[in-house]
Design a protein around this nucleic acid. Structure first.
Length: 574
DNA sequence: GCCGTTTTCGGCCCGACTGTTTTCAGTCG
């Protein structure tokens, strides 16, 4: 029995209560109890008294203890008797919440998607008080559209849409300023829609321009404060534009950046201080005066807080915490993972060097694939040595950047490495990674990873889990054990900045940093364009509360050389 | 159901929008 199961159980109770049409505060009490468990660092066994957690009271404590003892609770069992399972997915239908579904169930016998559709089509729902023609139309439309598109879109498929919109928004008239909000601003790995906040005194004019943006397929709503459109891209997605007077811009931006939990915490805190927060400003409850702000920094300061970066606004607990010194893009001195035409990259070695210099980098590592990866034209020993002489020439030619001669070496399915130690000793920077046999069991995968980590010539493990966000889950990794091993053997853990990967993910990076791991943030660029992914990588790192000292890319060339020499020294002592 | 340095009862984040009503409940972000 672990914490995750308990949390799931409590959430299941909350969902069932919702469908019963129970008191909203009772429902959120179960959710809060689940959250309290989630937020606590300790494992279930380490928490002596569950009831001592804030948010867990007499009732939820009893439920949790019963569940731990019996792996089931009478509370949920009873709810399951009261609420048909088929109703649960219907909560996802836009416009249907617990209260309405509860009525549909009790008054019309709706128990699942099929009976909901039937009741919609035969006029039963329309006849119900509180429902009407439009409600029915919406339900049928939602049922028809379900499954045509994933509910949330992976960030990589949304970035192009975002960038296209930004370049158009920059051209519009009557906009004082605008910004992206929502989960995209917080860099969630997948998002449902895009939210833009626009400051303007000419809402009507701006609204008229917005519905005419290229790529707009459908206008869902067009009012004085809000325009919602559907734009085409890899997937159709809806984009909300909130039009506000310039004074309210900052508080609106904060409000729609969320997360919901963050906002709840902020408002609770404000209330304690005699304020009321809304998207229009901070209201002084006694005087009714509403204060607005020109920067988010000033907004937080009003409540006695330091600025909380958007990436950290998730659970709400960040409101009470001291803000870390987060890494920023300006800290980055180089990129330690990229490919050239020697393997499967699009640009030549020198082209990549020139580009890296334009980024202002002081170092880079050229890390083409190794021979096992034939589809990528991986390098054998001979070609690798030849490449090295060219890298030496580059180092002689350019004195403002240091190029590490490296390789991205495959960890083979049997756990062995693609090169022997003698070859590895010739290289400056050795990456090891898995590109094959993803379907092996966790034990076999871990043997492969640990074998690579323990080899002192291996400096870094790239994209540790192999996942592609929203597309494939990667190979099974015991991440906790992986981090432990990496720390013990002083092997760098990569945060692959490619927005399809973001691997390791931010929540594990946080753990890695706490355990003392070294992290590198790399683009794994296969062309010029991909070198820009560093920005996304930095944002992902910030979401994991990563500080510059943890990240190898912030070091000086000398510091990196020292680290690599030290690792090599340990290798030769073996 | 949870909580309390104003409170053991009466609050619990706030506001917009929608569709339904005729002053509002439910849903959503």
């Amino acid at each position: 029995m672990d914490k995750k199961q308990v949390i799931k159980h409590l959430e299941s109770i909350a969902v069932h209560l919702e469908l019963k049409g129970e008191n909203a505060f009772k429902i959120s009490a179960y959710r809060k109890a689940a959250q309290a468990l989630e937020r606590d660092d300790r494992s279930l066994n380490e928490i002596e008294d569950i009831g001592s957690l804030s948010g867990v009271g007499k009732g939820t404590k009893a439920v949790i203890e019963e569940f731990i003892a019996n792996e089931e609770t009478e509370t949920l069992n009873q709810l399951k008797r009261d609420v048909p399972e088929g109703l649960i997915p219907l909560l996802n239908v836009q416009g249907l919440g617990g209260k309405k579904l509860s009525r549909l169930y009790h008054e019309l016998g709706v128990t699942d998607e099929a009976s909901l559709r039937a009741a919609s089509e035969n006029g039963d729902i329309e006849a119900l008080s509180g429902f009407g023609k439009k409600s029915v139309e919406k339900i049928i439309k939602a049922l028809d559209e379900q499954g045509t598109r994933p509910e949330r879109l992976p960030i990589a498929s949304v970035i192009p849409t975002y960038e296209a919109l930004v370049s158009e928004l920059d051209q519009l008239e009557d906009i004082e300023r605008y910004a992206i909000a929502g989960s995209f601003r917080r860099l969630r790995e997948d998002v449902k829609d895009l939210d833009f906040i626009i400051a303007t005194n000419q809402a009507e004019s701006v609204a008229n321009q917005l519905v005419n943006l290229s790529g707009v397929k459908e206008v869902e709503a067009k009012g004085e404060t809000k325009v919602t459109v559907v734009v085409t891209g890899e997937w159709d997605m809806s984009v909300d534009f909130r039009l506000v007077e310039p004074d309210a811009f900052v508080t609106t931006l904060h409000h729609f950046t969320g997360s919901k939990d963050h906002n709840v915490e902020m408002r609770r805190l404000a209330k304690e201080q005699g304020y009321k927060i809304s998207e229009y400003g901070i209201e002084h409850v006694e005087t009714g005066e509403v204060e607005t702000f020109t920067t988010e920094e000033a907004f937080f300061e009003r409540l006695g807080l330091t600025f909380i970066p958007p990436e950290l606004r998730e659970t709400g607990e960040e409101v009470e915490m001291t803000m870390p010194n987060l890494i920023s893009i300006d800290d980055v001195q180089g990129d330690l993972h990229m490919h050239t035409t020697w393997s499967d990259g699009a640009q030549s070695l020198e082209e990549m060097v020139v580009k890296a210099r334009e980024f202002g980098y002081h170092f880079m590592a050229v890390t083409d694939h190794s021979k096992y990866l034939q589809v990528a034209n991986g390098l054998n020993e001979e070609r690798l040595r030849k490449q090295r002489t060219m890298i030496d020439e580059m180092n002689a030619k350019y004195d403002d950047i240091h190029i590490f001669a490296g390789v991205e070496m495959d960890i083979l399915p049997d756990g062995s490495l693609d090169f022997d130690d003698d070859m590895l000793a010739e290289l400056d920077f050795v990456i090891a990674s898995i590109h094959s046999s993803f379907n092996q069991d966790e034990e076999t995968i871990m043997t492969r990873l640990v074998n690579a980590i323990q080899n002192p010539y291996v400096d870094m493990i790239a994209h540790p889990t192999g996942r592609l966000i929203g597309k494939r889950s990667g190979y099974p990794v015991n991440v906790e054990q992986f981090i432990e091993q990496a720390v013990e053997h002083d092997t760098i853990i990569e945060l692959n900045a490619n927005p399809n990967r973001l691997d390791l993910t931010w929540s594990w990076l946080k753990v890695a940093q706490e355990r003392g791991a070294k992290i590198a943030i790399n683009t794994d660029a296969h062309n010029y364009q991909m070198l820009n992914d560093m920005a996304t990588g930095i944002q992902a790192a910030r979401k994991g509360w990563i500080e510059p000292e943890t990240v190898v890319n912030t070091w000086s060339v000398e510091a990196i050389q020292q680290f690599l020499t030290k690792k090599k020294g340990e290798a030769s002592e073996r």
